[in-house]
Amino acid sequence: MKTFLKSREAILSAAILALLVLIASRFPAFVEPGNLARVFTDTSPLILLALGQTVVILTRCIDLSVAANLALTGMVCAMLNAAYPGVPMAAILVLALAMGAVMGMINGLMVWKLNIPPIVVTLGTMTIYRGLIFVLSGGAWVNAHEMSHAFTGFPRAELLGLPVLAWIAILVTGLFFLGIARTPLGRAFYAVGGNPHAAVYTGIDVGRTQFMAFTLSGMLAGLTGYLWVARYSVAYVDIAGGFELEVVAACVIGGISIAGGAGTILGTLLGALFLGIVKNALPVVDISPFWQLAISGTAIIVAVAFNTRSGRSKGRIILKRAEGHA
């Protein structure tokens, strides 16, 4: 119980509650259930991408290409829908998942087979994927009137009071929760990040595990790509520009250690919710949305400082410190 109170999840939950109380004291309408549901729905894309990013960071990698992956998949789905409105929704969902997964696999393969540092790979693919959107679309927009009702309606359709988009976020969070705790692959993510050498001796293929992490991250980015484009009913080159930073921020705030191997799914969920609430509260408390970028930057720095500090006190860092300097 005491360790729980000190944990990142408890601190973050307290911070989120304090934030909500603070906003509610001046704007009670913000904490009405209906509005909170809206905030959650609005944060769903961030949650989805942050979950994928979590497993990538757990394996000591980073995926900066998620936002570009999202935008490219979204554009392809939108263009397909505009050209062939008859294509069933299931096919579009499968396409989004597959396309995203393939882009994740490209990242993963280069990290696994060619041993290229993940930051370089994903910085590169980030610009390549983003550039491909322009090549595909010629810079043109796909607007609401070109999309079919089924296409735009899917993420917004309400089920038991919540839109499908929110349900997907809940479902995927649940799957990750179970998958990370209960499957060999889930444990392998931690093993690879915690100590790659030890992981090898226990029979885990480090590169393959990282490849799987990138594939998962890409798959979720692809799925979110369709959901994003359908929800906002527009697709263009720059959608979700810079979103990868927000995703990394959500993970780091959630206590996912950038050195790999430490962090929880609950932490990531709370980290994403924290950013989502801040983002949605800014216009309510009449602060210009231009503050958003600086706030998430500050949050990243504070959180990573926090992560390192809390890791230190546990005394398990001795080896890691030697490694970090090497």
Partner: peptide, 12 residues
């Protein structure tokens, strides 16, 4: 991570 953070902060 630090410079990803300051990248948002400075431009922010």
């Amino acid at each position: 991570v630090v410079t990803i953070g300051t990248m948002s902060l400075f431009r922010g």
